[in-house]
């Protein structure tokens, strides 16, 4: 399959810039391209998105394929799969990297089936097998209880990569690259779905994904009132509040606060897990945390196996006393 060459990153925009995940994929993609001795490209799909090509080049792209059309304003499976099919036909990349995002987890499998190739989703590591030049795609399976390494002989090899799994590329505005526009040429009637409305679930304060301190609550918090207490502690530590799945399923907190395999991925310096058992599914979202502190009444809870520091006991007694002491220490 000598005709497939190079590593392609599927870019995403956020707030008029390239999203953090795209910078990470460019960082990881550059390493893979180097190991292969091949080039690195980015594809940008959207409406009025050409302006981001310069940023993609500064972040390491040798080539930027731009598919810019009003019809591509919102991510939709049909239109984006068609656009990607066209880009892949022209560029014939060996590997396509996407983020494990709302877009990537939908687009990657659909594109793989369209192109009769494979996709590995939610990878935490992607490397090149020096012998075969195939990708070695490592992903958590069984809710994070195990890791699996997948390879494939089908091209292009598509992988979606979890956020914070690859080091972000550093911006260098002196870099040169080529911008290649590709005509979308999508028949509007072939786009069968329609985005009628976008409903953001507002969370005030620091974004969970960017926070350096996360105070996270589990089933043991018991109600939404309990989470108010965690908010006070988080505010004191200039951090954000997160949750495992049960508090979200029970409606104590917003769904967007869920951390884990199917929720947000966080990587703070300090992660305080309160009344949270530490299931593999939850821990899959915090493998990048530098220091985990566990407060739980069950000394056998799984969270103590991954925590650096822990206190065994009732969080209702521990959290207020901890907060008082922290307040005192921070004011000294």
């Amino acid at each position: 399959m000598a005709e497939y060459k190079g590593v392609m990153v599927c870019g995403e925009a956020a707030d008029g810039k390239l999203a953090a995940i795209t910078a990470e994929l460019l960082g990881g993609g550059r390493k893979l391209a180097g190991d292969l001795g091949e080039s690195l490209s980015v594809v940008l799909i959207g409406s009025n998105i050409s302006g981001l090509a310069g940023e993609a080049i500064a972040l390491g792209a040798d080539k930027v394929y731009v598919v810019d059309a009003p019809l591509l304003q919102d991510y939709q499976t049909d239109s984006y799969t068609a656009a990607m099919e066209k880009v892949v036909a022209q560029a014939a990349p060996r590997a396509v990297l996407m983020g494990q995002t709302s877009m990537g987890r939908d687009l990657a499998p659909r594109l793989a089936f369209r192109l009769k190739t494979t996709a590995a989703t939610d990878c935490v590591e992607v490397a090149v097998d020096p012998g075969t030049k195939q990708l070695l795609q490592t992903k958590p399976v069984y809710g994070g209880n195990a890791l699996a390494v997948f390879t494939s002989e089908c091209y292009p090899q598509i992988a979606t990569v979890r956020s914070k799994a690859m080091p972000a590329a550093q911006r260098d505005d002196s870099r040169q690259g080529e911008v290649i526009p590709i005509e979308a040429g999508i028949d509007p009637s072939a786009v069968r779905t329609r985005v009628v409305q976008k409903v953001p679930e507002e969370v005030t304060g620091i974004k969970l994904e960017d926070a350096t301190v996360v105070v996270s609550g589990g089933r043991g918090i018991g109600n939404s009132e309990g989470f108010k207490q965690l908010e006070t502690l988080a505010k004191l530590l200039k951090g954000a509040v997160g949750a495992s799945r049960p508090p979200c399923d029970n409606g104590w907190v917003a769904d967007v606060m869920q951390i884990g395999l199917t929720g947000k991925i966080v990587a703070p310096d300090l992660y305080i897990a309160v009344a949270l058992s530490g299931s593999s599914q939850h821990m899959a979202g915090c493998s990048g945390c530098k220091n985990i502190v566990a407060i739980n009444k069950d000394p056998e809870a799984n969270i103590f196996k991954v925590a650096r520091f822990g206190v065994v006991g009732d969080w209702k007694k521990i959290v207020p006393a901890f907060q008082e002491k922290v307040k005192q220490l921070l004011s000294e």
């Binding site: 103590f304 822990g310 006991g313 007694k317 006393a321 922290v326 220490l329």
Partner: peptide
């Protein structure tokens, strides 16, 4: 995991804060 002890839950909690400060996490 370093399980932080104390005579009471409140004392253990305060000791936890001290440990985090010592480890320069706070």
């Amino acid at each position: 995991c370093d399980i932080v002890q104390g005579e009471t839950p409140e004392e253990a909690a305060a000791n936890l804060a001290l440990k985090l400060r010592e480890a320069k996490i706070l």
